[in-house]
């Protein structure tokens, strides 16, 4: 056993010494400077702002929201605290923890509005200003939030439906990667509303890439004549591209949201178009607005949702966006 382990280590070391790659990897990386960081922070008093989201672990989208928030925080002399829980009850507890910490402001998502109602009332009582982002625009004002930054999921879905019409497509599949998520259902419903062809929904297990791939493959094989696959998250788009190739289908892959991989596939024409809701803006604007409110009494949006999307992105825009997605801000 010990000899086997030593042998394995020796092999690894030898392979390491001999096995460098001439292409790709870290060495080929351009040191892209992060957007505008390193500027001087505002001279206003130090604030503490908490952001509590319904994100699961390791989701690219929320990563970009956070980098926007951090950018605004460093500009505004804000101490930025992030926490997340995909279970509604857990998210409410995290908001309560932020109230207990007596933060100067709370940024929260309303994907599960009923669970957040009571705890946001407590925040109001404690005199902590709340800004909501991403989903749940219709509940924002009702729960006493100052403003909402996000994308109306139905509007985004409708934009996709129209773009599919423009491209002359007839039969679409809407891939839901989280069964029972309201905003994902709204996106598909929006597509259905404006799209002149037919739309079918497909539920897949988003945290299991091979299972997602084989489900999309099965759908493409089962239903003839599908010419558009609409995925609702950037990582799922890459999986759909694989599924399409393996199923020998000619369907176009289109997606909600953006990441580096999708931009690359837009350039390679493997993905038709992407709808971006600019998560960076949601994080940035939420923090910035709370800072403006605390230091200057400003409120954005006049009680209405401030839309950060949808922005339709095609192959033409992809080259300029490439460097932004690579550093995780777009």
């Amino acid at each position: 056993m010990r000899t086997a382990r030593t042998a394995a280590a020796v092999i690894a070391v030898i392979a390491l010494a001999a096995g460098c790659s001439n292409s790709g990897g870290k060495d080929s990386e351009n040191k892209a400077s992060a957007g505008g960081s390193g500027g001087k922070a505002a001279s206003t008093p130090r604030l503490k702002i908490a952001m509590v989201t319904h994100s699961g672990e390791g989701d690219t989208f929320w990563d970009i929201v956070q980098s926007g928030a951090k950018q605004a925080a460093s500009k505004d002399n804000v101490d930025f605290l992030y926490s997340n829980d995909k279970e509604a009850g857990g998210q409410a507890q995290l908001v309560q923890a932020a109230i207990d910490k007596k933060v100067d402001g709370i940024v929260v998502t309303l994907a599960k509005p009923d669970a957040m109602k009571d705890v946001l009332a407590k925040a109001e009582q404690a005199g902590i200003p709340v800004v909501t982002i991403n989903s749940g625009a219709e509940f924002s004002k009702q729960f006493g939030a100052l403003a909402h930054f996000g994308q109306d999921e139905s509007v985004a879905g409708e934009a996709v439906g129209e773009e599919l019409n423009n491209r002359g497509l007839k039969k679409a599949v809407c891939v839901i990667h989280e069964q029972g998520n309201v905003s994902l259902e709204q996106r598909c419903a929006g597509v259905k509303k404006t799209f002149k062809g037919t739309v079918e929904n497909l539920n897949v297990d988003g945290t299991n890439a091979p299972a997602t791939q084989s489900s999309i493959e099965a759908k493409l094989q089962a239903t003839k004549g599908i010419d558009a696959v609409v995925t609702l998250g950037a990582p799922i788009a890459a999986v759909a591209v694989k599924a399409k190739a393996d199923a020998g289908s000619k369907a176009e892959i289109d997606t909600f949201d953006l990441n580096a991989e999708v931009v690359k596939r837009l350039q390679a024409k493997e993905v038709g178009f992407a709808v971006d809701q600019q998560p960076y803006l949601q994080g940035y604007e939420a923090i910035d607005m709370l800072w403006l409110y605390k230091t200057n009494g400003d409120i954005l949006g006049g009680g209405k949702t401030v839309l950060t999307g949808p922005a339709i992105i095609t192959e033409k825009d992809a080259s300029t966006l490439g460097k932004y997605t690579a550093r995780g801000t777009r």
Binding site: A12, A15, L16, C20, G25, S28
Partner: peptide, 14 residues
């Protein structure tokens, strides 16, 4: 593999 810019087989063995 990526960080060491190594042949991917090295990463696979590691």
């Amino acid at each position: 593999s990526y960080q060491m810019t190594a042949n991917v087989w090295v990463g696979v063995l590691v």
